[in-house]
Nucleic acid binder design. Structure first.
Length: 479
DNA sequence: TGAAATGTTGGGGCG
DNA sequence: ACGCCCCAACATTTC
């Protein structure tokens, strides 16, 4: 027996890094054949619960990851409760004297990790955390005056001027287990997804959660999609986006893996490559913002908006969540979200603009809804993007940039295929009228079997009036 | 990563 | 040939 296998085991604390490849904490924990104790903790505080859609994803992902660890000779321990207590107990049971994890960058996560790290070190443990969940640490980039970036373009310039994204690590080929195995809860104990009612039926058709699914989709994106990304990414009826977001959200693939795969793919031209990498770096930018503004999800970045008078119309909010606003492109998006746990990015902007500006409902209500229903819910991207649309965020769209849902529909879904896919009751409307059924001649509606107010709702608000109302409300806080 | 309102220009019809 | 009007098409400003 060599010295390394005689060393004490190390705990690897899994969080939103549900992968084996390019996993620095796992790599360090299992180095030189050291026995590793992987543990996933369902924390009751700290990071807070995931949204419903993401809990479904998490269950699928954990199931697969546990099987993959088994194949490598290891077993993931599942626990619920306070991380510090759990880690200490497991260390006791296994004789581990080191704890490793990959850093997370949401405020509550940072706080928990700081406390746990300090407490464990006090007790003599070796504790180490690793980068890799974003391309660069959120504090890495600073403006000339030493502050955080507030505008994306300079951030991108700084990023691409020194884009030394670390090369991804290989997956370990085998993992050694400790001689004493701690008790584990079961996935059923976590009660992630009951299946009653089975609201995730649509998810299963569409998604393959887990590291393998992530790698396969990435390859497919590079081979078949990336080279038309710049031109088609805004068309929601077309399969023209990477769909990497849910995999990134739970760390089933590392952003560095995506960065390098896309950077080095020979078949992608420079325009498409750059466009995609810029989108990937938006994710880093959002974490950069969140790091410097920990309350990004709840507080207007631009305090001027604190006085904005939001509407409290609950019926309107409910209609929005259910995809019953009467504006087809908005409703198609909201129904895609409900059915698939995901919404095309172009449509996210349209639906968000509608909630905030046409309905004048607080962007935080939208942020919450998306957080609960998106399989790719991400504390940084979601908060930053909602603030961006609202006009109160960093580098935000000006408030008066109000999307016209009919115009957006005919620009980006010209044939209406996207609307038809998610709003079957409008499927027989001709393209000319599909984005504004309320303006279609009666005969056309009748022919298509549409009865406004019965088979499909009349518009919740008149866009033109709503637009003017929003602009007026904005005037009030402008000075 | 908007849209609408307003301004400008230039070609063609026409008296 | 000329001025006038109309109105796309495009550009600029404003919200």
């Amino acid at each position: 027996m060599n010295t390394s296998t005689r060393s004490k085991p190390a705990i690897y604390w899994l969080r939103k890094d549900l992968r084996i490849a390019d996993n620095r904490a796992l790599w360090a924990a299992s180095e030189n054949g050291r026995a590793v104790v992987p543990v996933y903790i369902r924390e009751d505080d700290g990071n807070g619960p995931l949204g419903g859609a993401q809990e479904w994803w998490l269950e699928q992902s954990l199931k697969q990851l546990m099987a993959r660890f088994e194949k490598l000779g290891s077993r993931i321990i599942l626990k619920s409760g306070d991380p510090l207590q759990i880690l200490k107990t497991i260390a006791d049971e296994t004789g581990a004297e080191a704890v490793f994890w990959n850093r997370r960058y949401d405020p509550k996560g940072i706080e928990t990790d700081k406390k746990v790290k300090a407490a464990l070190r006090d007790e003599g443990f070796k504790v180490e955390s690793f980068a890799g969940q974003i391309l660069h640490e959120p504090s890495h980039f600073k403006t000339k005056t030493g502050g955080p970036y507030k505008v994306y373009t300079p951030f991108w310039k700084a990023f691409s001027a020194e884009a030394h994204v670390p090369l991804p690590l290989d997956a370990p080929e085998r993992l050694n287990s400790p001689s004493r195995q701690p008790e584990s809860e079961t996935l059923e104990d976590f009660r992630l997804y009951t299946g009653k009612p089975d609201w995730a039926a649509g998810f299963r058709e569409l998604w393959t959660p887990g590291e393998n699914g992530a790698q396969e989709r990435l390859q497919h994106f590079i081979d078949e999609i990336a080279n038309r990304y710049a031109g088609e990414r805004d068309h929601p009826s077309v399969d023209a986006t990477s769909l990497m977001s849910p995999f990134l959200a739970l760390g089933e693939i590392s952003p560095a893996t995506i960065w390098h795969a896309v950077s080095e793919a020979k078949n992608i031209d420079d325009t498409n490559r750059k466009k995609f990498l810029q989108e990937l770096v938006w994710r880093d930018f959002s974490y950069h913002l969140l790091f410097h503004a920990p309350d990004l999800a709840t507080k207007n970045w631009n305090g001027r908006f604190d006085d904005f008078e939001w509407s409290t119309d609950e019926d309107a909010y409910r209609a929005w969540t259910k995809g019953q606003t009467g504006y087809p492109i908005v409703d198609a998006g909201m129904r895609q979200l409900w059915r698939d746990g995901w919404m095309h990015n172009r449509v996210r902007m349209i639906a968000a603009s509608f909630l905030i500006k046409d309905l004048m409902i607080d962007w935080r209500r939208g942020e919450e809804w998306f957080r609960d229903t998106l399989v790719d819910a991400d504390p940084a991207s979601n908060a930053a993007s909602w603030q961006w649309v609202a006009g109160c965020g960093a580098d935000a769209a000006p408030f008066f940039r109000i999307f016209n849902p009919m115009l957006q529909g005919s620009k980006f879904d010209p044939d209406g295929d996207y609307v038809r896919r998610y709003i079957p009751e409008l499927a027989r409307l001709p393209a000319k009228h599909i984005h504004a059924p309320f303006e279609a001649p009666y005969a056309v509606l009748k022919e298509a079997g549409v009865e406004l107010g019965k088979t499909y709702p009349r518009p919740l608000v008149d866009h033109k009036k709503a637009r003017n109302r929003a602009l007026q409300a904005f005037e009030a806080i402008k000075g």
